[in-house]
Simulated scan of single mutants.
Amino acid sequence: MGLIELFILAVGLSMDAFAVSICKGLSLRKVTFKECGKVGLYFGGFQGGMPLIGFILGVQFKDYITSIDHWIAFILLSFIGINMIRESMEKDEDCGIVDLTEAAVGEEEINQLGFKNMVMLAIATSIDALAVGVTFAFLQVEIIPAVSFIAIVTFILSGIGVKIGNVFGTKYKSKAEFAGGAILILMGIKILLEHLGFFPFS
């Protein structure tokens, strides 16, 4: 898997985190580099860690299913992508944000970026990356550079998402999830077609 392919995959994977980051930005009155960095670290860290776990698990079975590894990669990426597209079409544009009294706003903002809240969201948005890590094992991807790249891309896009949400609201949330799903499906199709010999020069 080349650098361009890895970048496209990283962008696709990070779209869930990007969408949730937009919601986080919407829930905050003021967004600084600190808030952007904090959200980016949570999402980027988990988005990079989950593929590593998936890779370790996938290596255990790689030798037994080499003949169908590309089909597994195609099925996993397509399933993840379809699920992301389905979620993008659900009517959840309010992100669960509720009106608060002025006295409660400060405490609510703390809770929004609190450890428990952020860890739960980071895990939820990176489960897909766990499955992608399994495909990395089948495709013999150099895992450390790959997960580092994914973590950095997610960190940057999540930080940007917080700012976008704070400024523009949820305008781009569904579009991001839809685009991410489409990217993962296309990557799965490309991997399968390469295995079947349709891209002999890739």
Rank of each mutant, 00 (worst) to 15 (best):
K38V: 13
D63T: 15
G96M: 04
S78F: 02
G25K: 00
V20M: 04
K62H: 07
D69M: 13
I22G: 00
I68W: 03
H70N: 13
I80Y: 08
D16R: 02
V59F: 14
F55H: 03
I65D: 04
G37E: 05
I85V: 14
E93D: 14
T66I: 14
G44W: 01
K24Y: 10
L76G: 12
F33G: 15
Y64V: 11
G25P: 01
I82R: 00
G44Q: 00
V59R: 14
Q60G: 09
I82V: 12
I97Q: 04
I65A: 10
L57R: 04
E90R: 14
G49W: 11
K91W: 12
E35H: 07
L26C: 09
D99T: 14
F79M: 15
G48Y: 04
L100P: 06
G96T: 00
G40S: 03
R86K: 15
D63L: 13
I53S: 01
K30R: 13
F18N: 02
I75K: 03
I75A: 12
I85S: 05
A19F: 06
Y42K: 05
G25I: 03
D94S: 11
V31C: 08
E90L: 15
V31G: 08
V20R: 02
I56W: 08
A19H: 06
G37F: 05
K30M: 11
S21Y: 04
F74W: 06
F79T: 13
F79V: 10
Y64P: 04
L28W: 05
G54H: 05
F55Q: 03
W71D: 11
D92W: 06
K62L: 12
L13T: 08
V39C: 09
S78D: 03
A17V: 09
Q47K: 10
D69L: 15
D92P: 07
H70C: 12
I72D: 01
A17K: 10
A17P: 08
M89F: 11
I97C: 12
I72F: 07
R29A: 08
D92M: 05
L28C: 04
Y64K: 12
K91L: 14
D99W: 09
D92H: 08
T32L: 02
S78N: 11
M89C: 15
P51S: 05
V98N: 06
D94N: 14
I22L: 11
S14G: 15
S27G: 06
K30C: 07
R86W: 15
L57I: 08
L77T: 04
F43W: 00
F46L: 10
G96L: 02
S78G: 02
G37A: 07
M84H: 05
L57N: 07
A19Y: 00
D92C: 07
Y42I: 05
V39S: 01
L77N: 02
Y64W: 10
S21H: 03
I82K: 03
Q47E: 01
K91N: 14
F79G: 13
G54E: 03
G25M: 07
I82M: 06
C36D: 00
D92Y: 12
I75S: 09
I82W: 03
K34V: 07
G58P: 01
C95Y: 09
F74A: 07
G48L: 00
N83I: 11
V20P: 01
P51G: 06
G58L: 06
I72A: 03
M89I: 12
T32C: 00
H70F: 07
E35Y: 02
P51C: 04
L41S: 15
K38F: 14
H70D: 07
G12R: 02
D92L: 08
S27R: 01
